[in-house]
C-alpha cells in the first residue's frame, strides 16, 4: 500500500487502543530494564525503547503514517538537525 496523501484517513478506535496497549507494555519493559541492568547499556536500551514509543506516537497518534512526503521529510530534517547539534556538542565536550 503506497498512497501518498491520505491525510483524511480516520484512525479507528481499535487501532488507538492497540497502540495504547503497546505503549503500556513498552513502559513496563523500560521499568523492568532499569530494575535489572543498572550499567551503562541500561540507559542506552531505555533511550531506544523511549524512541520506539515516541516513533509509534508520531506514526499513529500524530498521524504521520498518513501525511504527505513533504511533511515526513520536514520531520526528518528536524531530527537530523537535532542529531547534528548533539553529535557536535559531544565531539567538543568528550575530546576537550
Amino acid at each position: 500500500m503506497k498512497h501518498e496523501d491520505r491525510s483524511d484517513h480516520t484512525v479507528s478506535y481499535r487501532a488507538n487502543l492497540f497502540l495504547w496497549f503497546a505503549l503500556l507494555v513498552l513502559t513496563g519493559v523500560t521499568v523492568m530494564i532499569a530494575g535489572i541492568d543498572t550499567g551503562r547499556s541500561g540507559i542506552l536500551i531505555n533511550i531506544l525503547v523511549a524512541s520506539i514509543k515516541a516513533g509509534l506516537i508520531v506514526y499513529i497518534f500524530m498521524h504521520m503514517k498518513y501525511e504527505s512526503f513533504l511533511l515526513k521529510l520536514m520531520l526528518l530534517m528536524t531530527l537530523f538537525t537535532l542529531t547534528v547539534i548533539i553529535v557536535m556538542t559531544f565531539l567538543d565536550t568528550l575530546y576537550r
Partner: peptide, 12 residues
C-alpha cells in the same frame, strides 16, 4: 499515555 489515547479517540 492514557490521556494521549483519549485525545486520539476524540479525533476519531
Amino acid at each position: 499515555i492514557t490521556s494521549s489515547l483519549t485525545m486520539a479517540c476524540s479525533i476519531t
